[in-house]
């Protein structure tokens, strides 16, 4: 009788082990599926012309995504100019002065904001910037992506500044260095790799954002000429080509996806590499 109960308990235990390992495997299927298809279908679409030339109409062979790559890089640059200073400074506030009610509120809001859908941020910039200036523009795209970066950078900066041991701050202040100089030149340089990790992660996230760009950067078929004009971007061209009925555009969508996914994965693996070095110390 007792023996039977023990066997039953052991079977349930094994079953749970089996089911939970199975769920890890199930989760790996879409990841593997996406990576395999993007690699196999994407690589065959890529050649030098594809990378450096402008898009062509669907009935012509050839054409490329050069301006989309250029646009994505410009948008990332703009977003970084907005998101990095705001995020890093807000993060410094939270880590160094934020040990109070107001700090908790900001911290909480940053967490909540990072869960707000990116399309809402795009719609916000559309309403606030695009409707006011009456034109889609690279600048508005950069603002939308920058806003999405802010909460991520704020929290990762805070975490890494907090990891800096207090003895370092005290040593610096004992030498008569003012607090703000201590923070800017000593604490920040110690926390540097953590902050850079956060910035890389946020760039990896915004590089693939599509929905906010629909309302702001809009997309274009020519090279970027100014920040007040619409601009192309990799995710936009993937979307446009994927839902088009033309086979050669669809093939190019896979090519563009290959470039985008490689970029995002490299950033993630880079982050992993940097933080491993840090944890070893």
């Amino acid at each position: 009788m007792i023996h039977k109960r023990i066997t039953k308990r052991k079977i349930i235990d094994k079953l749970v082990f089996f089911l939970s390992s199975l769920s890890v495997i199930i989760a790996m299927i879409p990841l593997a599926g996406v990576l395999i298809f993007v690699a196999s279908k994407g690589l065959s679409a890529i050649n030098l012309e594809f990378l450096i030339s402008l898009p062509k109409p669907p009935d012509e062979i050839g054409g490329g995504i050069g301006n989309a790559i250029q646009g994505t890089l410009i948008l990332i640059g703009l977003a970084s100019m907005i998101g990095i200073p705001i995020g890093v400074l807000a993060g410094i506030y939270l880590a160094e002065y934020g040990d109070n009610r107001f700090g908790s509120l900001v911290r909480f809001m940053a967490d909540v904001l990072s869960g707000v859908p990116s399309i809402i941020m795009g719609l916000f910039v559309y309403v606030a910037v695009v409707l006011t200036t009456r034109s889609f523009s690279a600048l508005s795209g950069g603002i939308a992506l920058g806003i999405i970066m802010i909460p991520i950078i704020t929290r990762t900066t805070e975490e890494s500044v907090k990891l800096v041991p207090n003895s370092i701050r005290e040593a610096s202040m004992a030498l008569g260095i003012r607090r703000w100089k201590t923070i800017l030149f000593i604490v920040l340089s110690t926390a540097k790799s953590g902050i850079i990790t956060g910035i890389m992660l946020s760039i990896a996230r915004i590089a693939g954002e599509t929905a906010p760009l629909l309302f702001t950067a809009f997309g274009s078929d020519v090279w970027a000429t100014g920040l007040n004009k619409p601009i192309s971007a990799l995710p936009l061209i993937i979307y446009r080509y994927a839902i088009s009925p033309y086979a050669n555009w669809q093939a190019q969508a896979w090519g563009a996806a290959f470039i985008l996914v490689s970029f995002v994965l490299l950033l993630n693996i880079g982050v992993r590499y940097i933080s491993r070095e840090r944890y070893k110390k």
């Binding site: 400074l89 807000a90 002065y97 904001l113 707000v116 703000w180 100089k181």
Partner: peptide, 28 residues
């Protein structure tokens, strides 16, 4: 003093993060 200025600059950016949600709500 640098301390006071620096603290308040970072405070302004923290306030910005806080006000973002209100700003989005108001505009929409």
């Amino acid at each position: 003093s640098g301390d006071f200025i620096f603290k308040n600059i970072t405070l302004i950016f923290a306030l910005f993060v806080l006000s973002l949600a209100i700003l989005v709500f108001y505009e929409l």
